[in-house]
Simulated assay, not measured.
Amino acid sequence: MKTLRILGTRGVPAAHGGFETFAEHLALYLVAHGWRVVVYCQEDGPGPVFEDTWQGIERVHIPVAQTGPKGTVVFDWKATAHAAQFGDLCLTLGYNTAAFCALLRMKGVPNLINMDGIEWSRAKWGPVAKTWFWLNDWAGCWLGNHLVADHPKIKEHLRSRWLREDKITMIPYGADAVTDAHAEKVIVLGLEPKRYLTVIARAEPENSLLEIVKGFSKKPRGYQLAVLGNYDPEKNAYHRAVMDAAGAEVLFLGAIYDKAVVRALRFHSVAYIHGHQVGGTNPSLIEAMGAGNPVIAHDNPFNRWVAGESARYFSDADACSDRLDEVLQSPSVLDEMKQGILQRHQDEFTWEKVLVEYEALLVKWLPDLSKRKMKSARLGLIER
Rank of each mutant, 00 (worst) to 15 (best):
Y238F: 15
A102N: 10
S121Q: 11
V12I: 14
T72R: 12
A98M: 01
G18Y: 05
G71Q: 05
G94T: 00
H298S: 01
R263I: 13
A245G: 08
A201T: 05
V306I: 08
E43C: 08
G174E: 11
S217G: 08
L251Y: 03
A183N: 04
K375E: 08
A123K: 11
I187G: 06
C101R: 14
R221E: 02
V37L: 14
L369P: 07
G279P: 01
P220V: 04
I256Y: 15
L104E: 00
A99S: 06
R263M: 15
T21C: 06
A81V: 09
G18I: 06
D258G: 12
F75A: 05
L104W: 01
A264R: 11
V363D: 08
G140E: 07
K364Y: 09
I341Q: 11
K373F: 15
D335C: 00
W142T: 01
T281C: 14
Q329C: 15
A98Q: 02
N282H: 14
V306Y: 02
M337S: 07
S310P: 13
L158C: 05
L379Y: 07
L366W: 08
V295W: 02
A181F: 09
G144R: 06
T179G: 11
V356R: 13
L381C: 06
A317G: 01
H276Q: 08
D116S: 08
T67W: 00
K130R: 10
K353Y: 06
A84I: 00
Y272K: 11
A297C: 03
E58F: 07
A248Q: 13
V295Y: 00
I382R: 10
W351A: 10
L7D: 09
L209R: 03
R344L: 03
A307Q: 04
K185L: 14
D44G: 01
P127I: 10
Y313I: 05
C141Q: 03
D368C: 11
Y40P: 09
Y173M: 00
K155L: 06
A32W: 03
S121C: 02
V37T: 10
L361R: 11
L135W: 14
V60Y: 02
V270D: 04
V188I: 10
R195P: 12
A98V: 00
Q277S: 08
E43K: 05
S321E: 04
F133A: 08
S370Y: 14
T80G: 01
N293L: 12
L4P: 09
N303C: 08
V227M: 01
D368Q: 15
V213F: 10
T350D: 07
R240N: 08
A260D: 15
K194M: 10
L366S: 04
H276A: 02
L342K: 13
G222S: 13
V31M: 13
A27F: 14
I154L: 05
L112F: 06
I187W: 09
N145P: 12
A79V: 01
W35A: 07
I154D: 02
K124D: 04
E383D: 13
Y196C: 03
G34P: 00
L4C: 10
I57E: 05
I212G: 06
L362K: 06
H25E: 14
F302Q: 04
P367K: 11
W365I: 09
N303L: 01
V333F: 02
V356P: 05
L379R: 02
I113T: 13
T92P: 07
T131M: 12
D137F: 10
L89P: 12
